[in-house]
């Protein structure tokens, strides 16, 4: 799983239209989310993990002013995290099937000869 997230982040890094902060946020949260997913809830294994915004700075090294934009970009372009809110606080939810992931998709990777040849 770790390698997959790393590879997703590496793939996203090749698209210059995806900001670095969004990639850092996705990769930086991975270990913490993995730990939380490993703790089952009453219904069985967890499929989502929530991290409150106040902890994001610690886990990612991004400052609080950068965070909202980075989270929005990560949600839209990379897709492993999505934002949700319950009216009291915003949270990040970790999943695997969200986001557009178009900017750095098949076309982008195929257009790079060094990658296509490997």
């Amino acid at each position: 799983m770790g390698t997959n997230v790393l590879k997703i982040a590496l793939g996203a890094s090749l698209d210059s239209s995806i900001e670095t902060s969004a990639i850092r946020l996705t990769l930086g949260l991975h270990d913490e989310i993995k730990k939380r997913l490993a703790i089952p809830n009453r219904e069985g294994p967890r499929t989502e993990a929530f991290i409150a915004h106040e902890y994001l700075e610690h886990f990612t090294g991004l400052d609080h002013r950068t965070m909202p934009k980075a989270a929005a970009l990560a949600e839209k372009r990379i897709g492993l995290v999505i934002r949700s809110g319950d009216g009291l606080k915003n949270r990040l939810m970790y999943g695997t099937s969200h986001g557009q992931a178009q900017g750095w998709g098949v076309d982008r990777l195929a257009s790079l000869p060094a990658i296509a040849d490997r």
Partner: peptide, 21 residues
């Protein structure tokens, strides 16, 4: 399809090297 696999490259210690956390 959403996350096409990257070519096989030797990542080695890249996880730790690149870890922003």
């Amino acid at each position: 399809l959403l996350f096409p696999p990257l070519p096989t490259v030797e990542l080695g210690g890249a996880r730790e090297f690149l870890d922003p956390a």
